[in-house]
Design a protein around this nucleic acid. Structure first.
Lengths: 184, 184
DNA sequence: TAAGATTGAATCGTCAATCTTG
DNA sequence: CAAGATTGACGATTCAATCTTA
């Protein structure tokens, strides 16, 4: 009712900050991104003996788990977080390092397999114990079993939306197979 | 006991795959990394109008939420997922785009502030509704409230280990302040 | 013509060295 | 000399164009 003090914030340069800047959804998104960035940074240390980065680990592991330890370039690209051309360049490096070889496809001369070499498998297995120890220390042992379970369930749900090609259900339908169990 | 069939797997080229290749910890790690990669990829679409990437969004949001919408370069680098030099280059680009300005620090002539420009704030607020809609669609609305809560608690726990500088507790102790509430 | 894969050009980020000021 | 910030050289990744085979 006074004539003075009608606008207490008069001198403020900022006025009112936009409420969406503090929306809780941004908090959730930031948590996911920051946590994953920190995790990836730590994992890089495990990979130093191999002289490769996190994307390479992803690719080496997929090859190691595949029948005959081989996968078509396009398959590998589709399953990884790289584009086709990114995978070509990564496999170039892994080939120079002797961890992976390329083999032409006998039935389709346009295609190539990336094959994990015996050396590649050996070196991967060499670093795996230390890597698993890291994952345990910073991720799986940080949560108690119920929390870890809920965490993985949540990640699967989100992944099914943001990366449908990785979703086991979708992958199975594409391949016309029965529902599989997820292992990555 | 027979002399034949001593090694049923004789013909197998692969012998037994190494069990660590299928360790459940790799599954947890892969889920985190793949999910985050897919999430970041989708977010890039929201940022096209701004002509920037996900790292830039992180930086713009931090500036927008800071007093006077400014932060020292080194502060900003420490809080972001970039190195000092990476931040220098990002701010270069944001400056060219007119979204951020540099201002020298009056009390320490070695230092600079990155300041969000009025244009930068405006453009950030322009894209925020669509971005929040994306986050909701692929993350926060995918989980029901209990799941989302557990998910965020788990992420905070892991982040505190993999990125201790981002942990509110650590940050407060460094700044000699009482325990804060986390908002990112 | 389309599919599998690679290449050239460009972007984004890092590390190590450097410059300036405290 | 240490701290804040930037720069030069380089590595990893992407997009669009290209080459080869189906």
């Amino acid at each position: 009712m006074t004539t003075r003090g009608e606008r207490v914030e008069e001198a403020s340069v900022d006025a009112v900050p936009h409420p969406l800047l503090f929306d809780e959804r941004l908090t959730a998104a930031g948590l996911l991104v920051e946590t994953c960035a920190g995790f990836r940074e730590l994992v890089e240390v495990d990979l130093e003996p191999l002289g490769v980065n996190g994307s390479a680990l992803e690719v080496l592991l997929r090859l190691a788990r595949s029948p005959e330890r081989r996968l078509r370039m396009s398959e590998l690209a589709a399953q990884s977080t790289l584009t086709n051309s990114g995978l070509t360049r990564l496999v170039d490096r892994l080939q120079v390092a002797g961890l992976v070889a390329r083999e032409p496809c006998a039935t389709d001369r346009r295609g190539y397999f990336a094959v994990l070499t015996p050396t590649g498998l050996d070196q991967l297995e060499q670093i795996l114990p230390a890597h698993l120890e890291t994952v345990d220390r910073v991720l799986t042992s940080v949560l108690d079993p119920d929390e870890l379970d809920a965490f993985e369930r949540a990640l699967r749900k989100v992944r099914a939306v943001v990366r449908p090609a990785s979703d086991p259900g979708v992958a199975a339908r594409l391949a016309d197979e029965p529902e599989p169990v997820d292992a990555a």
